[in-house]
Amino acid sequence: TETYTFDSEDQAEEFAQRAQKKGYTVEKRKENGKFKVRVE
């Protein structure tokens, strides 16, 4: 499980979609103005 942090929602969304296409489970959340994407 890895967590990635992005400054913009667009970046987080793009990353999450790519990860989902590769078959990963993706969980997105906003925390302290940053966008976190957890991938497993």
Rank of each mutant, 00 (worst) to 15 (best):
Thr1Asn: 10
Thr1Phe: 14
Thr1Asp: 11
Thr1Leu: 10
Thr1Gly: 14
Thr1Ser: 13
Thr1His: 12
Glu2Lys: 15
Glu2Thr: 14
Thr3Asp: 11
Tyr4Leu: 04
Tyr4Ala: 03
Tyr4His: 07
Tyr4Glu: 02
Thr5Leu: 09
Thr5Pro: 02
Thr5His: 06
Phe6Asp: 00
Phe6Ala: 00
Phe6Tyr: 02
Asp7Ser: 07
Ser8Ile: 05
Ser8Thr: 14
Ser8Gln: 08
Ser8Asn: 12
Ser8Tyr: 10
Glu9Arg: 04
Glu9Ser: 05
Glu9Leu: 08
Glu9Gly: 04
Glu9Tyr: 09
Glu9Ile: 06
Asp10Phe: 09
Asp10Leu: 09
Gln11Thr: 07
Ala12Arg: 01
Ala12Ile: 00
Glu13Leu: 07
Glu13Gln: 07
Glu13His: 05
Glu13Asn: 12
Glu13Gly: 04
Glu14Tyr: 07
Glu14Arg: 09
Glu14Asn: 07
Phe15Arg: 01
Phe15Ser: 01
Phe15Trp: 04
Ala16Ser: 06
Ala16Lys: 05
Ala16Glu: 04
Ala16His: 02
Ala16Trp: 04
Gln17Thr: 10
Arg18Gln: 13
Arg18Phe: 09
Arg18Leu: 12
Ala19Gly: 02
Ala19His: 08
Ala19Ser: 05
Ala19Phe: 10
Gln20Glu: 11
Gln20Thr: 11
Gln20Lys: 12
Lys21Ser: 11
Lys21Trp: 05
Lys21Asp: 14
Lys22Ser: 11
Gly23Arg: 02
Tyr24Met: 11
Tyr24Asp: 05
Tyr24Gln: 08
Tyr24Lys: 08
Thr25His: 14
Thr25Gly: 07
Val26Lys: 02
Glu27Pro: 00
Glu27His: 13
Glu27Lys: 06
Lys28Val: 15
Lys28Phe: 14
Lys28Met: 15
Lys28Thr: 15
Arg29Tyr: 15
Arg29Asn: 09
Arg29Asp: 08
Arg29Gln: 10
Arg29Met: 14
Arg29Ser: 14
Arg29Cys: 15
Arg29Glu: 11
Lys30Gln: 12
Lys30His: 12
Lys30Glu: 13
Lys30Asp: 06
Glu31Phe: 05
Asn32His: 08
Asn32Asp: 13
Asn32Gln: 08
Gly33Val: 01
Gly33Leu: 03
Gly33Ile: 01
Lys34Trp: 07
Lys34Ile: 10
Lys34Met: 09
Phe35Pro: 02
Phe35Asp: 01
Phe35Lys: 01
Lys36Arg: 08
Lys36Pro: 02
Lys36Leu: 15
Lys36Tyr: 15
Val37Trp: 00
Val37Lys: 00
Arg38Asp: 10
Arg38Phe: 13
Arg38Val: 14
Arg38Glu: 08
Arg38Met: 13
Val39Met: 04
Val39Cys: 05
Glu40Cys: 14
Glu40Asp: 11
Glu40Gln: 13
Glu40His: 14
